[in-house]
Amino acid sequence: MLLRNLKLYKVKSGLAPVVQICRLSSSIPLEDFPVGTVSEKQVKPERKSIVPSNCRYVYPEFLPDPKMQWRNPLREKLERMDMIQRRKHIDIPEFYVGTIMAVTSSNQHAPNKATRFVGICIQRLGCGLRANFTLRNVIKHIGTEMKYQLYDPTIQKIEVLRLEKRLDDELLYLRDAPNEYSTFDENMEAEYLPEGSPIPVNTTMVKLKPRPWRARWERKNMKGLADLELPERFYKRAEELATPWEKYDLMKQYRRTIPEEEQKEIFAEVYSELHEVNVMRKKQKRKKVFIKPFKN
């Protein structure tokens, strides 16, 4: 019993007590101490990971660039730490391409030193600290786009007004669509989704303006585009240039993704802190709820 207590003590405090234990243990016969218990204590039962499986959709920027020449585990880890630090300061909500958002960023030329931009997220690019997203809106009949770095310190607030997905991973074709597809009210109020509900998919089919376009959309296989109404030769050419074998190129796929084992490692490292931050934010929100009194 005495020895067991001493052993525990040894684990708790550094080097000095080890010598003591050695001295004492010589006087106590070793048979008193069952050898099996040490190994039983050391072997931990495998714990189920608490990291949800949709982490890679919610926090895609935590996955590193899959390009092998650019990988650097130390840099990636440091970046992840910085990202969490930033997330402790401002709320970066879950959002997807197709989500309608409002970003308030510092602007020294604005009268109140900040600008708020509302728009639909049409693109999400990059990873790590360089992750960015583009918002699009039509302001005074002019299509306007703002590209924000997600972890930019000049951003003051990011709000999600309507959380939804579209059929495509990129909505750059909105640039060639009539203005009504990318017009959003600047004073739009946030719509809340009940917690745990699946992200709704907006299935609007976009009807483009007649050519010329910024890209040859008939070649891009976009799901959210209505019939393009092009002459037959365009579709023929698109068929000629299509690469249907690419979906079978297993190594090409592999080089573009981060394997599951690595993803698990990354999210196991990051998730507990992210979860803590989320819980803290929720508590703050509950405290701040304030209902404006109405005049009757």
Partner: peptide
């Protein structure tokens, strides 16, 4: 700067992989 594709999960291969195909 690229983003990792997340639409499907793959198992990690236990061989050395060239950064580019031949």
């Amino acid at each position: 700067m690229n983003q990792a594709e997340i639409s499907q999960l793959v198992s990690k291969l236990r061989i050395r992989i060239n950064p580019r195909h031949k």
